[in-house]
Design a protein around this nucleic acid. Structure first.
Length: 663
DNA sequence: CAATTCTTGAA
DNA sequence: TCAAGAATT
C-alpha cells in the first residue's frame, strides 16, 4: 500500500475549519474521512431524539463540505468503533489515523484502546486538541495539581503564559483516498415516530459547521454587547445559541474565544465598560464548558457520582409521580412548569431556567439528581454529558464550589426576577394565560374570583404545588441531618479500622428505574406517596432503544446490581488512575506543539478488552462483553468512595464540612 | 463624609 | 448564606 493514506476519524468535531486532525491528514497526503455511529457504546447515554436529529443534519452538511473539497464522508454503523476502524484500515490499506480528543469517560477509554490496538497493527496514530482552549493536563496550580474550584481554574486559563492556539483555516483541497474500497453504511438516526416531532426542529435550528459560523457572527455582532444585562431574562433570544454547535464541534471554541476577545479589546479601547463586562461573562460560560471537560478528565466518574463523598448518604426521595410531574410540567410552580414544557417542546432551555428546574428537582422534590441529568440528556438539543454532569453536581451541592446544600430556590421569587411580566409562563402554560402578573408565579395565593376570571381551577386544570416550599425546607433539613449522621458513623467505622473503606453504595440494592417515562399530560398525579431510599440511585431509561437493550438482559432481581454496572453504565478509570495519568510528563508530537493525551497507564481500565486476561469472567456475562468489550468493567477495587475522600483530603486548607453543611 | 442598612447575585 | 457594592442616613 502506498504511504500517506490516512484516516481522519470524525466524532464531535464536525467541521472542516480549525480541525487539527483533518489538517494533519491533509498535510500527510491522501485522506479518508470516517464517521462511525456506535451509539451502543454510550451505554445509558444513548443520544436522545433531538440530539440525533442534530447529528444527522450536521453530518450531512459536513459531507457536502468534504465533497466540495474533494472527498466524501465514509459512514459506518457499528457496535465497536475500534473494530470498525480496523476494518476500514484493512480494506483501504491506510497507514495513519488522526483524531481529535474527547474527554468524557467512555471516549477516554475507547480512544485509548483505539490507540493501543491500531498501534499494535502498525498504524501511526496521532490525536489532537480541537475541543478546548487548553488541555486539562496543561492547567495546574502552583503545586502542579488540578484546580478544584471553577474560579481558580478559569483565572489560570485566562493568565496562561501562552495563548490558546489560533484557529486554523479549512484546507483548500483534500486529496481523497480510494473510496471504492470502503462503502458507507446508511446511518439511521430517527424512527418513524420521531420524524414527525423532529420536523419542527428545523424551523428553529440550523445545524452544520457553516451555520455554526453564522450563529457565531450573529451573536458576536449582536446580543454579545448586552449579554450581561440580558442574562437574567428567561424569555428573550439573548444567549449565543452556540451550545449545540459547540457540542458537536461544528465551531471551534478557540474561534469563539478569539472573536469574543477581539470584540472585547475593541470595546475596551472605546471605553465601553458594559461591553467589556458582557464579554467577560460570556467567556465565563465558555470557561464552564472547558471546566466540565477538565472535571470529566480529572474525575471520570463525575457523571454518575457526587464528587463529595458525603452525598452518598443523602436520602433521595424516589417517587415516580414526582418525577413524572416534573417532566410533564405539572408541579404547580409556574416557572418550573413553563421550563419543563419548553424543554419538552423544543429541546432547549435558557441556562437560568435550567438552574431553576434542576434546583427544584434536587432541592424541593429531592429526586436523585442523576435521573434529572438523564432526562436532560434525553431531551436537550445540546445534551452534553460533561457539561450536564457539572451543572447537576453544581446544583446538587456536590462540588466544593457548589451552591449551598441547604439552599432552596423559590420558583416564585425566581419567577418575578427572571420573568417579571409573566410572559414566559404565559407562553408555555396557556392554562395560566389569563392570570394577572400579580399572581402569575404563585396562583395558589390568588383569590378565588381572580382564578375564576382567569378560568383556572387549581387541582383541576392546573395543579396545586406538589410540595410546599416550607415542607421541602423541613424535609431537606431532615435529610441533611440524616446524611451527616451517616457520614459520621461511616467515618467512625473507618477510624476503628473495622472496615476497609467507606464501602460503596452499589453494595446496596439499587433503586429501580421508573419504567414509564413518557409524557402523559392527562395522567393524574398521585401525591402523598413519598418513599425515601437510602441507597444510591440508578439512571432511569428513556429511549426506546435503551428499553430494548435492557429487555435483552435476562436478569433475576438479585442480578440487578451487576446489570447496572456492567450493562452500559460505563465505569471508568478512577481518580487515582487519572492522577497517575497527570503525573506523566505531557508528551509532544515531533511535528508541532500539539500535545497528545498522555498514555493511559492502566490495566484495570481495559480489563474487558480482547487482548486482556479473562479477569472479567467472575461477573455475569454482560452485553458489553458479548459485543466485544469496549468499556472497562467496574469494580469496587478501582472505584470507591474512598477516592472521593482523597479528593477532599488533598485540599486540607478548605473546610469542606463547613462549605456544604448548614450553618 | 463615614457609617450603616439594603440589595443583589452567586459555577 | 454572605460578600460586595449601592443607597441611605
Amino acid at each position: 500500500m502506498t504511504s500517506g493514506c490516512s484516516i481522519v476519524w470524525f466524532r464531535r468535531d464536525l467541521r472542516v475549519e480549525d480541525n487539527p486532525a483533518l489538517a494533519a491528514g491533509v498535510r500527510s497526503g491522501k485522506v479518508l474521512a470516517v464517521f462511525i455511529w456506535a451509539p451502543e457504546e454510550e451505554g445509558h447515554y444513548y443520544p436522545g431524539r433531538v440530539s440525533r436529529w442534530w447529528l444527522k443534519q450536521s453530518l450531512s452538511l459536513l459531507n457536502s463540505s468534504l465533497q466540495n473539497l474533494g472527498t466524501t464522508l465514509i459512514t459506518k454503523r457499528s457496535t465497536d468503533s475500534v473494530s470498525s476502524l480496523l476494518d476500514v484500515i484493512k480494506s483501504t490499506g491506510a497507514t495513519q489515523l488522526f483524531f481529535n480528543h474527547l474527554y468524557d469517560p467512555i471516549s477516554l477509554v475507547r480512544d485509548h484502546r483505539a490507540k493501543e490496538v491500531l498501534t499494535e497493527n502498525g498504524i501511526a496514530v496521532r490525536s489532537f486538541n480541537a475541543d478546548l482552549l487548553y488541555e486539562p493536563w496543561e492547567v495546574l496550580d502552583d503545586e502542579g495539581r488540578p484546580f478544584v474550584t471553577f474560579s481558580s481554574f478559569w483565572d489560570r486559563c485566562l493568565k496562561m503564559p501562552y495563548d490558546p492556539q489560533p484557529p486554523q483555516l479549512p484546507p483548500k483541497r483534500i486529496i481523497s483516498g480510494d473510496l471504492s474500497r470502503c462503502p458507507s453504511d446508511t446511518l439511521v438516526f430517527e424512527n418513524d415516530s420521531e420524524r414527525g416531532s423532529n420536523a419542527l426542529l428545523a424551523r428553529a435550528w440550523s445545524p452544520g459547521w457553516s451555520n455554526a459560523n453564522k450563529a457565531l457572527t450573529t451573536f458576536i455582532n449582536g446580543p454579545l454587547l448586552d449579554y450581561s444585562p440580558n442574562r437574567k431574562k428567561a424569555d428573550s433570544a439573548t444567549t449565543s445559541f452556540l451550545s449545540p454547535h459547540l457540542h458537536f464541534g461544528e465551531v471551534s471554541v478557540r474561534k469563539v474565544f478569539h472573536q469574543a476577545r477581539t470584540k472585547q479589546i475593541l470595546w475596551a479601547n472605546e471605553g465601553n465598560k458594559a461591553g467589556e463586562e458582557s464579554v467577560n461573562l460570556f467567556l465565563k460560560s465558555i470557561g464552564l464548558r472547558e471546566y466540565s471537560r477538565y472535571m470529566s478528565f480529572n474525575h471520570p466518574y463525575s457523571h454518575e457520582r457526587p464528587l463529595l463523598g458525603h452525598l452518598k448518604f443523602f436520602p433521595w426521595v424516589v417517587d415516580e409521580n414526582y418525577f413524572k410531574a416534573w417532566r410533564q410540567g405539572r408541579t404547580g410552580y409556574p416557572l418550573v412548569d413553563a421550563g419543563m414544557r419548553e424543554l419538552w417542546a423544543t429541546g432547549w432551555l435558557h441556562d437560568r431556567i435550567r438552574v431553576v428546574v434542576s434546583s427544584f428537582f434536587v432541592k424541593v422534590l429531592q429526586l436523585p439528581w442523576r435521573w434529572g441529568m438523564k432526562y436532560f440528556w434525553d431531551t436537550l438539543l445540546d445534551a452534553d454529558l460533561e457539561s450536564d454532569a457539572l451543572g447537576w453536581q453544581y446544583i446538587s451541592g456536590t462540588l466544593p464550589d457548589s451552591r449551598e446544600l441547604d439552599r432552596i430556590d423559590n420558583p416564585q421569587i425566581d419567577g418575578y426576577s427572571f420573568d417579571p411580566n409573566g410572559e414566559y409562563v404565559r407562553r408555555w402554560l396557556p392554562e395560566l394565560a389569563r392570570l394577572p402578573t400579580e399572581w402569575i408565579h404563585h396562583p395558589w395565593n390568588a383569590p378565588e374570583y381572580v382564578l375564576q376570571a382567569a378560568g383556572i381551577e387549581l387541582g383541576s386544570n392546573y395543579p396545586l404545588p406538589i410540595v410546599t416550599i416550607n415542607a421541602a425546607k423541613a424535609r431537606l433539613q431532615e435529610a441533611l441531618t440524616h446524611m451527616w449522621q451517616q457520614e459520621a458513623n461511616s467515618r467512625a467505622i473507618i477510624e476503628n479500622g473495622t472496615e476497609e473503606g467507606l464501602g460503596d453504595s452499589s453494595e446496596d440494592p439499587p433503586i429501580a428505574f421508573p419504567q414509564d417515562m413518557q409524557m402523559e399530560l392527562d395522567q393524574e398525579i398521585v401525591r402523598n406517596r413519598t418513599i425515601r431510599h437510602y441507597e444510591d440511585q440508578m439512571v432511569p431509561s428513556l429511549t426506546t432503544s435503551l428499553f430494548r437493550v435492557e429487555e435483552d438482559e435476562e436478569e433475576s432481581s438479585s442480578d440487578n446490581r451487576n446489570l447496572a454496572h456492567d450493562n452500559g453504565r460505563a465505569e471508568v478509570p478512577n481518580d487515582v488512575l487519572n492522577r497517575e495519568l497527570l503525573r506523566e510528563p505531557v508528551r509532544r508530537e515531533d511535528f508541532g506543539a500539539q500535545s497528545v493525551l498522555p498514555q493511559f497507564n492502566i490495566q484495570i481500565a481495559l480489563r474487558n478488552s480482547d487482548d486482556s486476561p479473562a479477569e472479567s469472567s467472575s461477573g455475569p456475562t454482560s452485553r458489553r462483553e458479548r459485543d466485544g468489550g469496549v468499556v472497562p468493567v467496574w469494580s469496587p477495587a478501582n472505584s470507591s468512595y474512598s477516592e472521593d475522600n482523597s479528593y477532599l483530603q488533598r485540599y486540607p486548607q478548605i473546610n469542606w464540612r463547613q462549605l456544604s453543611q448548614t450553618g
